Simulated scan of single mutants.
Amino acid sequence: MITLIQHAEVFSPKALGTPALLVSGGQIADISSTIDIQGTAVQQLDASGCYLVPGLVDSLAHIIGGGGEGGFRTRTPELTADDAFASGVTTLVGVLGTDSITRTLTNLLAKAHALTEEGLSCYCHTGSYQIPVRTLFPTISEDLLLIDKFIGVGEVAIADHRSSQPTPDELKKLAAEARVGGMLSGKAGIVSVHVGPAPAGVSLLLDVAKSSDIPLTQFYPTHMNRNQQLVEQGFAFLQAGGWIDFTTSTTPQELAAGEVQCAKALHQAWQQGLDCSRITFSSDANASLPLFDDKQQFIGLGIGRIASLLEEVVAAIRLGVPLPVALSVATTNPARVLKLPQKGELAAGKDADLVLLDKTTLAVRAVMCKGIWRYSDGSLPVQVQRDSLFV
């Protein structure tokens, strides 16, 4: 099917005005003010009243579920492709969490393939929370070089009582191997780092960069909005040349305890004139979010939501962050850090991963993944294809 989308206001995420966009063979064939193509094989869509933006790139999701810190019954469910589509997410990266015993890399890899078969672009990281990390082959480099879906390592935990308390030398060796594996495979080889609430924050990463040849850009610290102190550490990390990631899934309890809402953290960075091109949002979808009463007793479990990714992008726009900047933290920026050149941008030759947003509400109206419509709210005449066998 050849699809011609017209009359939308296009953000690549840079503002492009209202050109027509032509999709063919799963890629964007052209973006131009005048595209003259007709025929029965051409689907023409009038997208008046919509913003046309890139599909969101979610750099951290627990696609096989997470949790378990409160016992077996606190294990969270797997992510579904339909949830991703409805949230405007077309590309995502799956990781293991605290539990790398009952949740395994083979399970993670199989789920990534399953989501890909359902229409998403799904990748994953080798490794685990603890050091020494889990791998499928004997080494990280072999996993990155020989397993197509593996593009990085992590999430490795620091500054958290649940981490393995890694030393600088352990982290150096891990990062060095990931770096070489990435170079040999042509992948990012990034080290995704879970940063916990301990005051040390990202100091370990700074120590490694200072005492070795490993650059800060080898590390990709996430959960950097746990509290204002960590946000400020993240801004310093950014100014030193690194990347930082804010987590969109949260709970009212965490916000009340001092967690900084993603949208507000991005707004701070933008107001301070920081380089927002190296800031990303990720959903932490299907992670466990423990809930406590006023006596700090465990009373239940929230679950990370993939829908929170777009919700926080929208919230940032409502706070006054320019739309292209807010979009970039969930499109172009994560695509760059993950070294996925076909993703996160609307341009000729890129994958046709598109989202149509209502101009007034910024709600998702339709989603296309690699040239195929995968979601519609029913307001546009698009034919949705679903490849799931479950009904």
Rank of each mutant, 00 (worst) to 15 (best):
T222F: 15
T217W: 01
F219V: 03
Q228S: 13
N225T: 08
F235M: 03
L230K: 06
I306D: 15
T248S: 10
Q297C: 06
S212T: 11
G241S: 08
V231A: 13
F219G: 10
V231G: 11
P215Q: 11
A236Y: 13
R305T: 00
I306Y: 03
D294N: 11
Q297M: 06
I306W: 10
M224W: 10
Q229L: 08
G258F: 08
I303W: 07
Q233D: 09
S282H: 12
A307M: 00
N286K: 15
A287L: 04
T217Q: 09
L266S: 07
C276Q: 01
D245A: 09
L301C: 13
T217A: 15
G302P: 04
S283K: 06
I303Q: 10
A285S: 14
I244H: 10
L255Q: 10
S283R: 11
D245F: 10
S212Y: 12
H267K: 09
H223F: 08
S277A: 13
L230C: 04
D294I: 08
T248A: 12
I214K: 11
F235Y: 06
L266Y: 07
F246A: 14
D284N: 03
Q297N: 11
P290Q: 00
W270V: 10
K295Q: 13
L274G: 01
T222R: 04
F292Q: 12
L230D: 14
L289D: 14
I279S: 06
I299T: 07
Q239N: 01
T250A: 12
M224I: 01
F246Q: 07
D213H: 05
G304K: 14
R305Y: 04
E259P: 07
A263P: 13
A256V: 05
G302L: 08
C276N: 12
G258I: 13
F237H: 14
Q297S: 05
L216C: 05
G273F: 02
S283Y: 12
L255P: 00
V260S: 03
L230I: 05
P215L: 13
S282Y: 13
L266G: 03
P252L: 15
Q229Y: 08
D275I: 04
F237L: 15
A285E: 01
F235N: 02
C276E: 00
A263D: 10
Q261Y: 01
R305M: 15
